[in-house]
Design a binder for these strands. Structure first.
Length: 590
DNA sequence: AGAAAGATGAACGGTTTG
DNA sequence: CAAACCGTTCATCTTTCT
């Protein structure tokens, strides 16, 4: 915008030159070229473990568990041998000791399988020793110096200890967290853009699945967890995020109890605005982690039952203003009767449901509804309480509605579309199966809820917005903005599923959008270069929005509810990575 | 015809919270 | 204790490809 580099003596000029100097000095420091923005994540290490460990026994499961934490299989086996399978706590202690002592060449090789630079080993050792001395201090004193606290915060945000300490040296002891992250980011950007560095030596800003770094991060995380546990043991100060009751966040249109203002942490303030969504009911600690990465913003937990006829408990982390929100009109039906009037005729008085439960990806089977019908037709009028209880439990579990005498049925796809705030037949056609419609819808936003939060953008961007939509799915964010009457100028939409991309594309065409829709299949393709190119072409994103995969967090998952480190839910870290890159690139251009 | 790919239906607990 | 939960996997049936 006002990036006018003419020779006026303003504060800006001073800032700029100083910045450049510092960046240049940084480049001369022995900063490893593999120093990159790193965050912990699921895939790589765990995958390697899966491939190499053989099937079946409880022992191999235990090995796998520790390999997943970032230790090598060899060392894990040794530690288990020494401690026995029973005592996981002491196995971990042993593993940590090993990792500090034994940085054998074999292990290094095992760790850096592919794309690690030659400087990598050095970095790894440095960081480990850094970590050790730090954790020793910790145990001796049982309190953190300010410096350590800052270091810890930076590490938690995904930066390496090395980057963090350089930044702290450079920015001085009084530097704020925001200044430090800006500095690190600037250094990374400068290095990535350095025309004198050969490409292969440039840091990969998007390279978050680097095996070795992940390993280091895992160790670091574990140390953190251990200390947290200790602290909790000392004082019962429970800092896990609690869900509000009623679950109305900063307020909903229909209920009293609005919060009119909040103070965002400095590092959280845009540009760009951002909006992150995921399920509210996660395993413990997940929302703490999400909030910590997303600049310590307090999540807003809202149940969509205040917006439509179905429950949908979700957490939203965003840096949007919260004043003067308004809902999409008309207000959608908010009871089952209003939403599905045809069911009223068959609805028995003993089924007191007013709202549906959360709309999920699977529906009840025909066999189940048939069983229920059989169980009900034995009684004329009201069945005994026992039967009522059975039927109601199944109704709530599967969101069944009454479609005939004694006859229950799951919702039709178009009914789900309506409840979630999508236009009818939004997911229909284009070769998508019924099952996949349910799946895509079950994974989507509730449009009215999200739109209520996004409504504040309408006055701020009367000419429309540039949108970066990650994990777009069937385009809940796009539909919400459109229904709010906010023009969409350039939309970059990242979505892995082809049918979902087709749904969004076809919606885009059918609603006669004037803007430009760019779709990308894989978040991994969105690296610093690509983002910079996109941002340069239309001048930055006004909003970065997305809900990352919840399947490893969601309560319905009986198989792989592995938390934020789960195979898919770990993509949250890509949301953070991309958001932070956008923040950095846009910050730099101003 | 037979293989391959796709669609459908059914069985599968556990964590967290109040 | 009740109540809720953006799900995964496997067998079987159906459709499509060779």
């Amino acid at each position: 915008m006002d990036g006018n580099p003419s020779g006026e003596e303003s504060d800006n000029i001073d800032w700029d030159t100083e910045d450049e100097l510092e960046i240049q000095e940084i480049q001369n420091l022995p900063l490893s070229s593999s120093s990159s923005l790193t965050v912990p994540g699921g895939g790589a290490i765990a995958g390697a473990g899966e491939a190499s460990s053989s099937a079946g026994s409880s022992n191999s499961k235990l090995i796998h568990h520790f390999v997943g934490m970032g230790f090598s299989e060899k060392i894990v086996a040794k530690a288990i041998e020494e401690n026995g399978e029973g005592n996981t706590e002491s196995i971990l202690e042993t593993l940590l000791t090993y990792s500090a002592l034994e940085n054998s060449p074999q292990q290094q090789q095992h760790v850096d399988s592919d794309h690690c630079s030659s400087e990598y080993d050095e970095t790894f050792l440095d960081d480990l020793s850094d970590m050790d001395s730090w954790s020793e201090n910790e145990e001796n004193e049982n309190s953190l110096s300010n410096k350590d606290k800052t270091l810890l915060s930076l590490a938690n945000m995904g930066y390496t200890v090395e980057e963090a300490s350089i930044a702290m040296d450079r920015c001085g002891p009084d530097a704020s967290l925001a200044e430090l992250t800006d500095f690190i980011c600037a250094a990374q950007m400068a290095k990535a853009a350095d025309p004198y560095l050969p490409d292969e030596n440039k840091p990969k800003l998007n390279n978050i699945y680097d095996n070795g770094r992940q390993k280091k991060r895992k160790l670091y995380e574990y140390e953190l967890w251990k200390r947290k546990k200790q602290r909790r043991h000392l004082d019962e100060d429970d800092e896990t995020i609690r869900l509000p009751k009623p679950m109305i966040g900063f307020g909903v249109p229909t209920e009293p109890g609005q919060v009119h203002s909040r103070t965002l942490p400095e590092a959280a303030i845009g540009p760009p605005f951002f909006y992150y969504e995921n399920v509210a009911l996660t395993p413990k600690g997940v929302w703490n982690t999400i909030s910590r990465f997303l600049y310590d913003i307090e999540p807003e937990f809202v149940d969509s039952k205040y917006f439509c006829a179905a429950a949908r408990k979700r957490g939203y982390v965003h840096n949007l203003p919260i004043q003067n929100r308004f809902p999409i009109l008309p207000i959608p039906p908010r009871t089952i009767h209003e939403a599905l009037p045809l069911t009223r005729k068959w609805w028995p008085s003993w089924d007191e449901r007013i709202k549906l439960n959360c709309l999920q990806t699977c529906i009840g089977s025909a066999k189940l509804t048939e069983r229920i019908r059989k169980a009900l037709e034995d009684w004329d009028g009201e069945p005994p309480l026992k039967v009522q209880k059975y039927v109601l439990d199944e109704c709530r579990k599967w969101n069944l509605v009454w479609v005939g005498r004694n006859k229950l049925a799951p919702l039709e796809p178009d009914e789900v579309e309506m409840l979630l705030g999508f236009p009818k037949n939004h997911t229909r056609g284009g070769g998508i199966s019924r099952t996949d419609r349910y799946k895509s819808l079950g994974n989507s936003f509730q449009v009215d809820t999200v739109a209520y939060h996004l409504s504040v953008l309408k006055d701020l961007f009367p000419g429309g917005i540039n949108l970066l939509s990650l994990f777009s799915g069937i385009g809940g964010a796009e539909v919400a903005l459109h229904r709010l009457g906010i023009p969409l100028k350039n939309v970059v939409s990242v979505e892995i599923s082809e049918v979902n991309r087709n749904i969004v594309r076809s919606w885009w065409e059918q609603t006669n959008q004037r803007g430009n829709l760019i779709d990308i299949a894989d978040v991994q393709q969105l690296n610093g270069d690509r983002l910079e190119q996109l941002i340069n072409s239309f001048g930055g994103f006004d909003l970065v929005i997305g809900g990352s995969p919840c399947n490893n967090l969601a309560g319905s998952n009986r198989v792989s509810r592995d938390g934020l480190e789960g195979k898919d839910s770990a993509l949250f870290y890509d949301y953070f990575r991309i958001l932070d890159l956008v923040k950095c690139i846009m910050g730099k251009q101003q």
